[in-house]
């Protein structure tokens, strides 16, 4: 099983998944934080943090997942009150209107949580809401082995940043 490791995130990839863990270049006073993206299709070189440029390429049996870290100022806020990574999702968690970009037939779910002292959001898109019962086990196969370790380096000062 191929394994991705970078920026304190470790992701053993189930068969058929590819992915990347990266940090964007800092622009101005923005402080970039790690983003991990996983997909069952060929990810284009330029993909928005939440799948812009990729979700439009999805087939009905495809999955796109992004794990996005927020700055330390988010720690302790109500939004990130959930402790721990959602390891197992159910088909009922996916709704056609929980999509950053509403595309016909697709379905999504988004979770905010804190793991290892780091605030994250997990966003998952399924290529077909109708096929969510067969796709969600594959998502869970990915999530089951994801590991997040405490921030590998001191937090950088951060300004307001959109995601």
């Amino acid at each position: 099983m191929a394994t991705l490791r970078a920026h304190g995130i470790e992701a053993p990839l189930p068969g058929g998944f590819e992915g990347r863990i990266f940090m964007r270049s800092s622009i101005g006073e923005e402080a970039p934080f790690p983003v991990a993206q996983f997909a069952t299709f060929a990810l284009p070189e330029e993909v928005g943090d939440f799948g812009g440029g990729a979700v439009t390429l999805m087939g009905a049996d495809d999955i796109f997942t992004t794990l996005f870290e927020y700055g330390p100022e988010s720690l302790g806020t109500r939004l990130f009150a959930r402790q721990g990574f959602p390891r197992s999702l159910s088909p009922d968690n996916f709704l056609p209107y929980v999509l950053r970009r509403g595309l016909g037939g697709q379905s999504g779910t988004q979770w905010f949580f804190t793991e290892a002292g780091r605030p994250f959001t997990l966003y998952v898109v399924l290529g077909s809401h109708a096929r969510r019962r067969s796709l969600v086990p594959r998502v869970n196969g990915l999530l089951a082995n994801l590991a997040i370790s405490p921030s590998p380096e001191p937090s950088l000062p951060s300004g307001a940043r959109w995601n």
Binding site: G53, L57, G59
Partner: peptide
Amino acid sequence: SRGQPHAEGLDGPEREL
């Protein structure tokens, strides 16, 4: 057979920006 031409206008990081 997999990809659909969903994209119109901006896409990718430019769209999110």
